[in-house]
């Protein structure tokens, strides 16, 4: 039997790295791989509070989302035009900003611990990192692909925290369904060609 609490610190480190790289990188294949790894971290933090069978739902949902969005992105105009650079120019400023956020989140985690009493420190830290970096990603770009991925990052952060207080099967199913619906809506936005404005 795996003790996920012992692994939680490594999960937080993993989440910090994946969510940071997802903002910085512009290689979509690399980003999708990072998303898949990120959901592994989410799974291990959720598994502290939930039975492993239920926590697996998060992992499987996340991987399905990654597959759907990734496959759709390959066929989109945006995906074909991408340069695929691993470290594009001008990303150092973003990295500096991310580091500031990470430091703030690590220091804030103890305050939030008083509020969400059922969560461990690492669950709170991992959750806050994902929510903060997800918000940052959403606020930096206007293209559907990174915005949708930013929303997934934000939501998975929330789901870690929420799993510590709510273990209802219905809400687990609803949130999984909502994530899949968001993936479909995002894919629709990614794949639909841009039409002339104001048609009617």
């Amino acid at each position: 039997m795996i003790n996920f609490e012992n692994l939680s610190f490594f999960a937080v480190i993993l989440l910090s790295i994946t969510s940071t790289m997802m903002i910085i990188s512009r290689n979509w294949r690399f980003i999708i791989a990072l998303l898949a790894i990120q959901y592994l971290g989410v799974f291990s933090l959720v598994a502290i509070s939930w039975p492993i069978e239920m926590a697996m739902v998060k992992l499987i949902t996340g991987w399905i989302i990654g597959t759907v969005v990734g496959l759709i992105h390959t066929t989109s105009e945006e995906g074909r035009l991408e340069t695929g650079e691993f470290w594009p120019a001008g990303q150092s400023f973003k990295l500096f900003f991310i580091l500031l956020i990470l430091i703030t989140v690590w220091s804030l985690a103890s305050r939030v611990e008083e509020w969400v009493i059922f969560a461990t420190r690492n669950q709170i830290t991992g959750s806050l990192i994902l929510m903060a970096l997800g918000l940052l990603q959403v606020s930096l770009v206007t293209r559907p692909f990174p915005v949708i991925l930013g929303l997934f990052t934000f939501l998975s952060g929330f789901e870690i925290l929420y799993s510590t207080v709510e273990s209802s099967l219905l809400i687990a199913g609803l949130l999984a369904g909502m994530n899949l619906a968001l993936a479909l809506a995002g894919s629709y936005l990614i794949i639909t060609p841009i039409t002339p404005e104001n048609s009617r």
Binding site: T142, P144, V147, L151, Y188, T192, T195, P196, E197
Partner: peptide, 22 residues
């Protein structure tokens, strides 16, 4: 999420749709 297919997919409209989602 369900209402997105009803909205326009022009460049500017898409910004509005993404904000709605966000």
């Amino acid at each position: 999420l369900g209402s997105i297919p009803l909205l326009s997919q022009g460049m500017d409209a898409r910004i509005g749709v993404l904000r709605l989602l966000t």
